[in-house]
Amino acid sequence: MPQPSPWFTSPADAVDRLAASGYLADEATATTAYLAGALEKPLLVEGPAGVGKTELAKAVARVTGAELVRLQCYEGLDEARALYEWNYKKQLLRIQASQGSDQSWSATHDDIFTDEFLLTRPLLTAIRRDEPTVLLVDEVDKTDVEVEGLLLEVLSDFQVTIPELGTVAALRRPFVVLTSNASRELSEAVKRRCLYLHLDYPDAARELQIVSSQVPDLEDRIAGRLVETVGRLRDLDLKKAPSIAESVDWARTLVALEIGELDEKAVADTLGVVLKHVSDQEKAIKELRLRS
């Protein structure tokens, strides 16, 4: 049986410990993070890019002292990259070395399909660890639908079946976080096995709190102006709205350049920190000037 790991003792404990690591969680986020650990259920976190989905998993790992194992999803991801594969070159060398010996093929076959020749990928690595582990399956919506089938056995029973070795069950269930930008709908089978949390851009008060905690050297007046400007940018029809991390980067930029006023010129000069498309920058400069 997997050994239970007490990740957080309560939602309030999650709020306090995550905040101590620099992640300011609201009540819903803290409650869901607590339940994911207490119920030993995977947590599916959905929302636009840059709202802190991946950072939540990293923060849980930091505050609990757990190892973070990350599976970065992408189109074309397959079982060999997500789960495991055999070291074929090493197996071939072993087969060649056994030629001419009295060892039978069946013995050679059994010899080359052992842990020595197994290359573990993130999913199997997380399952096999007996120390506290946070498994981050990042941007799961970017994978093909078939990849979700690989996740089902892990998310259902925290075990993986390797035909040559048998079933490998988790000694200690990892804290699992799946993130999705909602670029496609995930299967109901995956969703059914998870707790669900939707993260969106924070309101101005919370974002100001985040920026101020991350960049304490920035004057409150300028920080407030920055958060207001970021909010206006997100209201525009941009290719990519500024993330929370980019708000923090912008604040650090203002401190580094010793900018004492976030006026139209300062915004135009530093806009590349938060907007990474020329068309977005042009639209922002035009709109912010018209509305200043």
Results as ranks from 00 to 15, higher is better:
Pro11Asp: 14
Ala14Ser: 11
Thr125Pro: 00
Lys41Asp: 01
Thr229Ile: 15
Val160His: 07
Val51Glu: 12
Arg17Val: 00
Thr29Arg: 02
Gly76Gln: 02
Gly65Gln: 09
Val60Glu: 11
Leu56Ser: 03
Ala266Leu: 01
Lys89Phe: 12
His277Glu: 15
Leu136Tyr: 14
Arg252Ser: 12
Tyr201Cys: 12
Val145Tyr: 01
Arg252Gly: 12
Ile244Lys: 07
Val248Ser: 08
Cys73Asp: 09
Glu116Ile: 06
Glu148Leu: 14
Ala19Arg: 09
Ser187Glu: 04
Lys142Gly: 01
Lys58Thr: 11
Thr64Val: 03
Thr54Asn: 05
Asp16Leu: 13
Arg291His: 14
Ala204Lys: 02
Thr167His: 07
Ser98Met: 15
Ser247Lys: 11
Thr143Leu: 07
Ala266His: 00
Leu68Asn: 03
Thr125Asp: 14
Asp102Glu: 10
Cys73Tyr: 11
Gly149Val: 04
Ser213His: 11
Thr161Leu: 11
Lys53Pro: 10
Pro48Cys: 02
Val154Thr: 09
Leu171Met: 08
Leu155Glu: 10
Gln214Cys: 09
Val190His: 02
Leu152Asp: 07
Gln91Gly: 10
Leu218Asp: 12
Arg232Phe: 07
Ile222Asn: 06
Val215Asp: 07
Val274Glu: 08
Val63Trp: 05
Glu246Gly: 14
Gln99Arg: 10
Ile259Thr: 14
Val190Ser: 05
Lys286Tyr: 00
Leu151Trp: 12
Ser156His: 01
Pro2Arg: 13
Gln214Met: 10
Ser10Thr: 11
Glu40Phe: 02
Ala82Thr: 09
Tyr201Gln: 14
Ser183Arg: 06
Ser247Asp: 04
Val63Ile: 04
Pro163Gly: 08
Asp269Trp: 05
Leu150Arg: 02
Leu233Glu: 02
Ala266Ile: 00
Arg291Pro: 05
Leu39Gly: 08
Leu83Met: 10
Val60Gln: 03
Ser104Ile: 09
Glu246Tyr: 14
Glu146Phe: 01
Leu171Arg: 14
Gln209Lys: 06
Leu150Pro: 04
Met1Thr: 05
Thr114Lys: 08
Ala204Ser: 11
Glu219Trp: 01
Phe158Asn: 13
Lys239Asp: 13
Val154Pro: 06
Val255Trp: 13
Arg289Asp: 03
Leu18Ala: 02
Ala107Pro: 00
Thr29Asp: 03
Asp217Lys: 15
Leu68Tyr: 00
Asp130Phe: 02
Arg172Val: 14
Asp111Ile: 05
Ser183Gly: 11
Glu228Ser: 15
Glu258Trp: 08
Leu275Val: 00
Asp115Cys: 01
Glu287Gln: 01
Gly22Met: 03
Gln281Tyr: 01
Glu40Val: 01
Leu238Gly: 03
Glu40Ser: 15
Lys90Glu: 15
Gly166His: 08
Gly22Lys: 04
Glu164Tyr: 04
Gly272Phe: 07
Gln91Trp: 14
Leu152Lys: 13
Gly52Arg: 07
Asp115Val: 03
Glu261Asn: 12
Gly22Thr: 06
Lys58Trp: 05
Glu282His: 00
Ala57His: 08
Ile259Cys: 09
Ala245Asn: 09
Pro202Asp: 03
Thr32Gly: 00
Glu75Tyr: 05
Val248Trp: 10
Leu39Asn: 07
Glu153Arg: 08
Asp110Cys: 02
Thr229Ser: 15
Ala20Ile: 05
Leu262Glu: 10
Glu75Asn: 03
Asp200Ile: 04
Gln209His: 05
Lys58Arg: 15
Ala30His: 13
